[in-house]
Write a protein that binds this DNA or RNA. Structure first.
Lengths: 334, 334
DNA sequence: TTGAAAGCGCTAACAG
DNA sequence: CTGTTAGCGCTTTCAA
């Protein structure tokens, strides 16, 4: 590829001068400037970003650690970050670290080697302690979708617990009194927090959640189908189900309807996340919105701000899921 | 950040030696090697990828130009590339260039500056000529989702025309004789090719497609809803609709059902793409599968192979959409 | 087996 | 306004 020197040689000037015109630097004579500009176009010169990064110690790159690009949730997350990075003329470097501590660590390391300006990390598997150490060492890291008290001003997170409470209040207001829950088998905090919030809120209304009505499965559509089958087979009574996420909720609905139960007439269902699917399932799904796009944008802004001194953390860090009332929940009357 | 020199100083050796142990290079004494290894861990050394890229002229980066990370189609594309790049210890640099020639160009340039090992480009707006010139200048580029004859051994593409034909054959076999089409207003080739294939195949069966039954809208769910309304309002007769993509098809279905038409009983609908939604809509959508994940993997492999001499192009380049028969189409009988 | 030295392409003083 | 120079962190000969 053409380099600064090539241009300099062709123009009969020093490479410093060429560098100046490339960077619109301090005054260069208009004649020279024009001549060099022409040469740059003609010879198809493109500055080498690596060389630049090396000398300036800036990389115009924002790194993102996510488990999987194709998952709509993470795709939306990445997109949120991309939106703000484009505004700042930065680029997205994605490092996929799927759900093991080892691979998350590896993903972070790769980004570290790239000397990204800043890094937004979605990590569910690395332990709190390790993350805390890591974040102390790298002031430009930001954690998304997870709250750790010791580094709380660098966590952009959703209050899952509150989400569970909101779900409970919604169903309670609809006069439901017997509940079931479908949760995820994945060993992360989110399902526990959502469930705990839900159960706590029931308790406040003097309802003890019967753990026989709790079923776990994989957090997928199929998982939801299976969980609903289990629930049905158990012969327990319930008029409403709080489901870990929308995919499972939609799976559960299809099982229920296949078994002659109508949603919401016989059973109310509430999901979590508000993915695209939720809006177009039949019945349309009542759910709790996970504003991941917005959160990602905030995380990116925070990250960018943290990457430069002085660090000011005025960002919104904690997000509350919002109830999206659609058609899968209704008043209980029997 | 810690550098090679820091480690060298701490170990009392030259930085060349440290470089050797970092790269498992030619024999370094086992004692030294151990000592240095320890120091590397202790001091948290991470090689600077930019410096490395500069000197080796390799970047272990694979660039991707797509309009939008959050669109499930492109997210899947990116994921396909990510899969093969991970295998090769490469990383994904995403450059979003939305739907204007200028921004696509800009996205490519940014990747060029990064000296990516190779670049997979999804471009719908840059003219053929310009792309041809660009590709001649950069033998490591690969074009995805578009076919240009002059650079055909570097295009990984779907035969959209054939897709239209397959749709037509399917509906014809189901005894439909009166058709409508919903197409996209976006000024790219895909909708035209799909439609042309569809119409041509009808012609083979001696059916002239009535252009009054053709409606265009934005290629989104809402677009599909609107298009179906227009179709309904026109009062034309048809028993089957070939829709540009799944999102529009699902939108069309919801409009039809809201207006008292049952799918597929009254109207058969066939989509295109086979996105996730297609599998979980009600009725489940009959559609043509766009194997974008697979295509992206092939593109990445081709790209990687093209980035090193000698260039051998043994890859599969042309893909044919496959009919996925679900519930939204059925035999016509009236 | 190890070190010295050159240089990748660029920016940023510092001179002139 | 322009050139000279040093050096970013690293790999890679070439010597020792």
């Amino acid at each position: 590829m053409t380099t600064l020197k090539d241009i300099a040689k062709a123009a009969g000037v020093s490479h410093a001068t060429v560098s100046r015109v490339v960077n619109n630097g301090p005054k260069v004579g208009p004649v020279l400037r024009d001549k060099i500009h022409k040469l740059i176009i003609e010879m198809g010169y493109r500055p080498n970003a690596n060389a630049r990064a090396l000398v300036t110690n800036k990389s115009t790159t924002i790194g993102v650690v996510i488990p999987d690009v194709s998952d709509p949730f993470f795709a939306t997350l990445a997109n949120g970050i991309d939106k703000v990075s484009r505004q700042q003329n930065m680029q997205l470097l994605i490092s996929t670290g799927s759900l093991s501590a080892e691979s998350e660590r590896e993903a972070i390391n790769l980004l570290l080697e790239r000397r990204c300006e800043t890094i937004v990390i979605h990590s569910k598997k690395i332990a709190d302690d390790e993350l805390i150490t890591l974040f102390k060492a790298h002031p430009h890291f930001v954690l998304i979708d997870r709250y750790i008290a010791d580094i709380k001003d660098r966590c952009v997170w959703l209050d899952n617990n509150e989400g569970g409470k909101i779900a409970a209040r919604h169903l309670l207001a609809l006069k439901h009194r017997q509940f079931a829950c479908i949760t995820s088998t994945f060993d992360i905090d989110d399902p526990k927090l959502r469930l705990a919030g839900f159960v706590d809120e029931l308790a406040k209304a003097n309802i003890t959640f019967d753990s026989k009505n709790l079923v776990s499965a994989e957090p997928t559509l199929q998982g939801g189908e299976i969980a609903a089958q289990t629930l049905l087979a158990s012969g327990q009574d319930f008029s409403a189900i709080f489901v870990y996420n929308d995919a499972m909720a939609i799976g559960a609905i299809s099982t229920l309807e296949d078994n002659g139960y109508s949603v919401p007439k016989d059973v109310s269902i509430i999901g979590f996340d508000d993915v695209l699917l939720a809006r177009y399932s039949r019945p349309k799904l009542t759910t709790l919105q996970y504003p991941i796009d917005l959160m990602a944008q905030h995380a990116a802004q925070l990250a960018l701000r943290n990457s430069q001194e002085p660090r000011i953390a005025t960002n919104k860090l904690k997000f509350i899921p919002q109830l999206i009332k659609r058609e899968s929940t209704s008043t209980y009357f029997k």
